[in-house]
Simulated assay, not measured.
Amino acid sequence: MNRNTLNKLVNFVWFQSIWVLAIFTQYQFWWALAVLLVVFFLMTSQPRLDAVCMLLVVALGTLVDSALTLTGMFAFSGPVYGVPIPLWLVALWAGFSLTLGHSLNYLQGRPGISALLGVIFGPLSYWAGARFGAVDFPNSLIFTLIILAVVWGLLFPLCMYVYKICQTRLSPKQVSN
């Protein structure tokens, strides 16, 4: 296994760890979520790029999930602090954003595949969260999953585009010989 593949695998496992912590423990192990995010920034070769992308994607994700919550698509039983969604979900968005240029970077320039994967895995992730009690769907499951499929079919390629723009503007310029 080459170093690039290993880095992608580590990033994928790292994000899955964040997902499991966020969904199963929510606020109980918030410090572990924070540690995982800090460790990422200690290990990344482009902390500025990743930080800017993270802030933009977290803002976008928080806006979208807040809108879905305020329109009655989601209901959370735990506390929320300052935004309509729980902070563990904001942390989950932070973790997701830090996969865009790493384990998911093969999707750059492939909006159709990104959209298809968003249609499938976006709703699947929320449905799994609902099955484990992290979120409730006040509407029917089918209706909620269809809405999430539409949202994620647009949102995932948009997140990939946000990363591409960040990369274009923040990565060191290539010097021609």
Score class of each variant (00 low, 15 high):
Leu154Trp: 00
Leu158Phe: 11
Pro47Ile: 01
Gln46Ile: 04
Leu104Ser: 08
Arg3His: 04
Val90Met: 06
Met160His: 02
Ser125Thr: 14
Leu21Lys: 00
Leu56Pro: 00
Ala75Arg: 14
Ile147Arg: 10
Ser17Tyr: 06
Val35Phe: 15
Leu154Val: 13
Gly101Asp: 02
Leu9Gly: 11
Ser97Val: 01
Ser103Gly: 04
Asn105Trp: 01
Val38Ile: 08
Leu49Ile: 09
Leu148Gln: 11
Val175Thr: 08
Arg3Ser: 06
Ile147His: 10
Pro86His: 00
Arg110Ala: 03
Asn177Lys: 13
Asp136Pro: 08
Leu21Glu: 09
Leu170Asn: 02
Leu33His: 02
Val162Cys: 00
Val57Phe: 03
Thr25Met: 05
Gln26Met: 15
Trp127Asp: 05
Gln46His: 14
Asn139Ala: 15
Pro86Val: 03
Val80Phe: 04
Tyr163Leu: 01
Phe29Ser: 09
Ile113Arg: 11
Leu49Phe: 03
Asn139Val: 13
Ser103Cys: 06
Ser171Asn: 13
Phe76Val: 09
Pro79Phe: 15
Phe76Asn: 08
Gly78Arg: 02
Asp136Gln: 14
Thr62Val: 04
Arg169Gly: 11
Thr69Cys: 10
Tyr81Met: 03
Gln46Gly: 05
Gln46Pro: 07
Leu154Asn: 03
Arg110Thr: 03
Lys173Ile: 14
Gly72Met: 06
Asp50Phe: 00
Leu36Glu: 03
Val150Asn: 04
Gly61Thr: 08
Tyr106Glu: 00
Gly118His: 10
Ser114Lys: 06
Val162Gly: 05
Tyr106Arg: 07
Cys166Trp: 13
Pro172Gln: 09
Leu68Pro: 09
Pro86Thr: 03
Ser125Glu: 06
Asn139Phe: 15
Val83Phe: 08
Phe143Pro: 06
Ile85Leu: 07
Gln16Tyr: 12
Phe137Cys: 07
Leu21Ala: 08
Met43Trp: 11
Gln167Asp: 12
Thr99Arg: 01
Gln108Val: 07
Gly72Pro: 10
Phe76Ala: 07
Phe96Lys: 01
Arg3Trp: 02
Ala149Lys: 05
Pro79Asn: 14
Thr69Asp: 11
Pro123Arg: 06
Gly153Pro: 05
Ser176Gln: 14
Gly61Pro: 05
Val151Thr: 09
Phe137Leu: 11
Leu36His: 02
Pro47Lys: 08
Ala32Met: 13
Tyr126Cys: 11
Pro111Gly: 05
Trp152His: 13
Ser66Gly: 10
Trp152Thr: 05
Phe137Ile: 09
Thr44Val: 15
Leu55Arg: 02
Ser45Ile: 07
Val150Ala: 01
Gly82Trp: 12
Phe24Cys: 15
Phe143Lys: 13
Leu158Val: 10
Ile113Gln: 11
Asn7Ala: 14
Gln108His: 10
Met1Asp: 11
Arg131Cys: 12
Val90Gln: 03
Gln16Phe: 13
Gly153Asp: 07
Val20Cys: 08
Ala94Lys: 09
Thr99Pro: 01
Pro172Thr: 08
Val64Lys: 14
Arg131Asp: 13
Phe137Asp: 02
Ala94Arg: 06
Met160Ile: 11
Arg48Glu: 03
Asn139Trp: 15
Leu42Val: 12
Asp50Asn: 01
Lys173Gln: 15
Ser125Arg: 05
Ser103Gln: 00
Asp50His: 00
Leu9Ala: 14
Ile165Tyr: 12
